[in-house]
Design a protein around this nucleic acid. Sequence first.
RNA 1: GGGGACGUCGCUUAGCCUGGUUUAAGGCCCUUGAUUGUCGAUCAAGUGAUCGUGGGUUCAAAUCCCAUCGUCCCCG
Length: 367
Amino acid sequence: MDFKIIHKDTHSRARCGLLTLERGTIETPIFMPVGTQGSVKSLSPQELDECGAQIILGNAYHLYLRPGLQIIEESGGLHKFISWPKPILTDSGGYQIFSLALLRKVKDEGVLFQSHLDGARHLLTPEDVVRIQNVLGSDISMPLDECVSYPASFEQAQKAVERTTLWALRSKKEFEKRKQGILFGIAQGSTYKDLRKRSINELLEIGFDGYAIGGLSVGEPQDLRYNILHFAIDDFPSGSPRYMMGVGLPEDILEAVSMGVDMFDCVVPTRYGRNGTAFTSQGKLTVRNGEFAHDQRPLDEKCGCTCCRNFSRAYLRHLFNAGEILGIRLVSYHNIYFFLHLMREARLAIREDRFSAFKENFMARCE
RNA sequence: GGGGACGUCGCUUAGCCUGGUUUAAGGCCCUUGAUUGUCGAUCAAGUGAUCGUGGGUUCAAAUCCCAUCGUCCCCG
């Protein structure tokens, strides 16, 4: 693995980089579409490619429970199974165990939980989670971490940081046995600055290929989120990729890019797509709204995606009102294209030292 | 021709027997928000019916009575 910073914006802390992995080189800052169960919901790999996707996410927890490792192994690994030859980052499933599982018991050994699918009990250790991602064939693996919700008491957050560090160390040891792909560390600490500092410093001692900031965008107010990010990112080594997990809306991403974050993933483009909200250069557009019933314009007149080149707001609104699958697909496609195009433009703006203006301009147009 | 059942927002039901806490309730649809390591989910808010129509009884009627119109069923 190799991470090169090719340019730093002169007026912000945004930077452009190239992260080289075995299956390809990705340009940062980058947005990674989320394909939890081995599918970026409603989109084919070919469509993702058309949109400009360079890397997508999978989820160890979901894929381990279904279809199970054996089937993926028989299929020659996750890339072959889902027919996506480019890089895949797999999330550990730590977040899901805390958000989805019916019951869970966190012990230092690992997490004992009941599957949200069938109620079966499983114990997953940090070692298991690394091994699962090894079987999947992940290009970037994420360790099991403990993500606390907001608000969390200092004691809860502290306990989670301690456990996350302990698990990070064990994950690293397990990872070293095979060294397949690369492994990131995940910093926690909720909204407590001293915990944030402690968490990243403990990860740095262990040493990872990249560093993720987790536990944000879990319900905290926006200004607090930016405040914590701004503070925490200082301790992330500038020579390694920085990944903000689960974020976010376009404005959140641009704000984080300006603080020096390199990688993002978020369900928003596809989730909003399924629920009929499109992201456009003028802000969000709720396709179902009655005002679009007779609107012959595309979702975004400045967008060059297949959806915008072929379909009207009136038609898309009809598809949603009629419950047609195509509506979900088209708006999801547009949203993914929009996010990836936004990142392309952001990278260009950074290289031309005009990222701050680009960001301000985007925010202003979305008002 | 005879008998019966039923008419309450766009759809579908509750309320009627035992009149008053009904500014008529719920579900679906519709409208508008929310949605951040997934959610074809879910949540929140909102529009919408003078209770088929006309009389009557009563202090008071969706509710009781009469007539009428409409729909459906059964018997000839």
